[in-house]
Amino acid sequence: MTVQHHPATALQGAAILPLKDGRDGGLVFTIAVLSFLACIAVIAALAADRAAQGWARQLAGSATVQVRPMGGLSGPEAAAQAAEALAGVKGVLEARAMDRKSAEALLEPWLGKGNIPADLPLPQLVTVELDPEKPATAAALNQALKAAHLSAAVDDHSRWMADVRASSDTVRASSAIACLLISAAAGAVIAFATRQGLAARRDIVEVLHLCGAEDPFVARLFQKRFAGLAMRASAYGALAAAAVGAILRLTGGSDGFSPALPIAWTDLAACVAAPVLGATVAAVSAHSVAMAILREQV
């Protein structure tokens, strides 16, 4: 026997739980906001990480050597010799003795222009530009200075780099914790909604049980429903976050948003993960809560 005159969708089997629910609006909004916050946290972390990597690269690419005049050599002479010795070390691209003018320029921010007496003893500095691929180690630089019988202190910036790395780690950890907390909040919201949904749809759940439905069947209905809803809501939030990121990137010019937060277009791609993550969190939360509630019944 063939079935005629029916809507095309009828034989697909309509959704067992009603699709439209007036109470969904607030839930969609909440999940969308959570998703937006998570995406912004990730974009900020990616940008901060990029800034930190830039600073670390600059620091790693150079070293400073302070030369002490010794053995009848004047300061500038000792510095020149040190520069010569250091230039020969493997992993050094360039070593340059800093002249007095450059050294005075470095002090200006503290002492003011024209306030530096001509006879003020200034440290003799050699700036060393290192090969970023294989930078010479502080030990290698010290070795070369020792071989040239020069007394000098090498600062390879490792102390600063450790600080930069630590702050970059902190930003990354904060972002991860924010995302975890936001995911947990989303899970809790979905758990609450599932509880409400099971109570509101008690009539349907009872009919399903009397028709022989097993608990996982019923739980899957709520899981599917809330995973779909969370995916949609997370996508709204992610789109809004991507839009905000794009506006910051556009207004920030070549720096990204600012030198401290250089947003790249690729950072916005992180928002793609939000709907997937949102749907997963919702599915796990709805299923486990529904199963727990159903198991308490007769």
């Binding site: 029916h6 009828a10 089997g13 309509a14 959704a15 067992i16 009603p18 009539d203 349907i204 009872e206 009919v207 399903l208 009397l210 028709c211 022989g212 439905a213 069947f217």
Partner: peptide
């Protein structure tokens, strides 16, 4: 009756079969 109001007659009758 306990019919599901959001499902048509066909889907209401088919419900136990879908569940199975």
């Amino acid at each position: 009756f306990r019919l599901l109001d959001h499902l048509n007659a066909f889907d209401n009758v088919a419900l136990p079969l879908r569940i199975a």
